[in-house]
Amino acid sequence: MQYVWDFRPVWLNFGVLLEGLVNTLKLSGFSIGLGLAIGLVLAMGRLAPSRIVSIPATAIIEFYRNTPPLVHFFWYFYGLPILTGISLTPFAAAAAALSVQSGAFFAEVFRGGIISVDRGQWEAGRAIGMSHVQLMRRIILPQAFRRMIPPLMERSFELVKTTSLAATLTYGELVYKAMVLATQTYRPMEIYSTVAVMFFTVLFVASLGMRAVEHRLARRAAR
């Protein structure tokens, strides 16, 4: 059987796909930003000397890491209004689900970076009388940060791909737009292939950019 590719419907509707891409990037950017903040708080919580803080933080992290993201999307979108009467827009529900879930993963990246800092650094900070917060802010985080960049990048790219689940909440990101177009034009192959290329282009360019940043940091560290 010979499939005849026809990309005309794609070009004719490319504006719609671009709009979808912009929405994908909006949702990603917002969720990465919020996710990093949540992740930092969760990581600090998990590493806190007090158990009253560390146990709940650990519980949240483990729960979100070990449940499927689609469930979180449905939860925030369908569950929250039923339980609390608060109803979220598709964007807000998707952003909430994505940022908390990736916050849990980011937290583990932060924690990994933090505990990878040599024990002697903690000791030296404590020995000059630093508090836990001063030690983190002045000594540990600045050293951990460089090591955390590659895994944070990895996680962020993962998040960009996971935004496609927001389609199930009818949020108009790239995959949702593609689904709509596909049913209108009967050209799913061409449309989804184009979507794949768009995702690839964005993420690949971003990873090249990040690699350049990493390279610069490595050079600075070696001075």
Binding site: D118, G120, Q121, E123, A124, A127, I128, I139, Q143
Partner: peptide
Amino acid sequence: GMIFQQFNLFP
């Protein structure tokens, strides 16, 4: 004050 075997300067 404490001085360690491994110096532990902040790199």
